[in-house]
Nucleic acid binder design. Structure first.
Lengths: 327, 327
DNA sequence: TCTAATGCGGACAGAAAGTGACCGGATGCC
DNA sequence: GGCATCCGGTCACTTTCTGTCCGCATTAGA
């Protein structure tokens, strides 16, 4: 039963797993005549998937970019890799694509067999970063750990309009049990927040993800309350009292612009020439520590001067500490 | 023609896009009778995809984890998000899953419509990190830019056994035109290398990805030469003459262990107590700069002393520079 | 306890499709 | 030119698909 549908999927899967197939190989795998294979190929083409065929000896079929994205037929391993990629993508907070990333993540998390889920968790725990690795974020503090699994779960609930219960520990350390209608996940300054309608308090509330625990999906659906995208973001930002508070400074380096740019590569793209022998490197970050780090990349032996009160003050203190530390 | 196959895919797509659907909604969307819908659901179940149904009022269907991964039916946006996630995953070099990540990446790159490809590139250029962000790697230098697109292309060629031509600039700056049979991509120390059979030199060669340019996929297939996984890795490592060269140091901080751990969080997991008032923080990284960065996270006002000649020497110089810079 | 809403699946008959065999043709590599 | 490969028309046969009709099972809520 349904031989043709599943065979079509299998054909797609074969084509995705290996770029080139001859008709013979395919008919062998699928157990059909060549004529039927050609008809299957035709069908797939009609669905908009680009299958190119090459005639002559060494001919065959290959899947190419078509007009639309074909269904991705993944092996378990690949599924795991994708889920991992999306999780780290989501927790890293790629600007401008959070929503889509979450929706893709929700899609795959929804159908992930438990065995694979366990593998993902195992792998994820291996990927923790070390000191000096990617773990420092723009704010210059170690990024708070974001629970990617929680993120996935919440994303699903938001998408599907499913009530949730969980424990929440507020800023003052007070714990409480909440019953909410999740509305949207919003990333602010590398942290994730859940905007939801609190059923007990009869109002919108914002929850920081790392303070949520013991989530229980009730499976009870609800009709999402109307709220514009902007409203949502504004509510969260207000609740979070988030200010950007970025710190700026400028470094005057005793080096021709070209040389510094050469040395810094991509990070030196904003360096400007001051005169033949000096250049200016504008810096911006969310903490003085992050700025100071940047200074360490000025080549050894090269003199520089910083402009910017916060950074200067910080450097003064660090210089003292460094000197003491090696005494 | 093929109404049922495409309808089945559409059903799967609907189920993936939204968790809960009533039979009515589905029949409306698909334009078939309820009986047929039930049969479609049955078919999907037979294929191993977990569709749960709920009877009674507020009943309906939902897609759940089944025994296998169902074909992922993605919107364009989601496809972009996944490709981005995989690219960053691959270039970040997740240990232990490189191969699978590449295979998943190859799968999606293979079928990515050009329009989406352009979107990915656009987005990717926006996600470049700023100073102090995740762009510093373990070696303490800005991570060399890995061209994710190149990586995807090479992954495809390795998988499919397709000959390549490209230009290669070796360490000494010498350029040459190569014609190779790509065999495997190997990440070493945050850099990617291509192991391939060089057809002109009649031997294996290792190419650093960031030195490869002007790649031309010939579309000519070849029979991959036999080589074990270990052999491959060994060849690359030998070619790369990779040594770990990590630098170690220890910091004695005038703070009780508990307080420092509290302050550092995850990064302080190896801190040891020395006595009531002091603790020792062992550090390890691939450059002194990275070590020095770690020091900045010791709370302001707290005194510390470093043990380790390289770091001490480096700090001495930095202290001087900082002092000069603010003069 | 009753009722309305929802999903379940057997039976049937007509419509639609899928299938393999056969064939002459086109294309590309050597 | 010779060979290997893909192309797509036609035909007869088989299988599947589909909608309709129906009584049943399950659930939430009045």
């Amino acid at each position: 039963m349904a031989a043709t549908t599943s065979r079509t999927l299998e054909l797609l899967s074969l084509l995705q797993s290996h770029r080139h197939w001859s008709a013979r190989e395919l008919t062998g795998r699928l157990g059909v005549s060549e004529r039927t294979l050609r008809r299957d190929v035709e069908r797939l083409r009609e669905l908009g998937y680009g299958i190119e065929s090459v005639r002559g000896s060494a001919g065959g079929y290959r899947l190419e970019a078509g007009t639309g994205l074909p269904p991705l037929l993944l092996t378990d391993d690949e599924g795991v890799a994708i889920a991992l990629g999306l999780r780290s993508q989501a927790t890293a907070g790629l600007r401008g694509a959070e929503h889509t990333t979450l929706s893709a993540l929700a899609k795959i998390e929804q159908v992930l067999p438990p065995a694979l889920r366990r593998r993902i968790e195992a792998l994820q725990s291996h990927t923790a970063v070390g000191v000096g690795a990617g773990g420092w974020n723009r704010s210059g503090r170690p990024a708070p750990e974001v629970d990617a699994e929680l993120l996935g779960l919440l994303a699903l609930s938001c998408r599907d309009g499913e009530r949730l219960r969980f424990k929440y520990t507020d800023a003052s350390g007070q714990g409480s049990a909440r019953s909410v209608e999740p509305y949207r996940l919003v990333p602010v300054a590398r942290r994730w927040y859940l905007l939801a309608w609190d059923r007990d308090r009869d109002d919108w509330r914002t929850f920081r993800l790392d303070r949520i625990s013991d989530v229980f999906p009730t499976r009870v659906r609800f009709e999402p309350r109307a709220l514009t995208e902007e409203d949502a973001r504004e509510r969260v930002e207000r609740a979070v009292r988030y200010r950007r508070r970025s710190i700026e400074a400028r470094v005057i380096v005793e080096l021709p612009r070209a040389e510094l740019v050469e040395h810094l590569g991509w990070y030196g793209r904003e360096v400007q020439a001051v005169d033949e022998a000096h250049c200016a490197w504008p810096l911006e970050a969310e903490s003085v520590e992050a700025l100071a780090m940047a200074l360490m990349w000025i080549p050894p032996g090269v003199r520089y001067r910083v402009e910017g009160p916060e950074l200067a003050e910080f450097l003064g203190r660090q210089a003292e500490r460094f000197a003491q530390a090696t005494a």
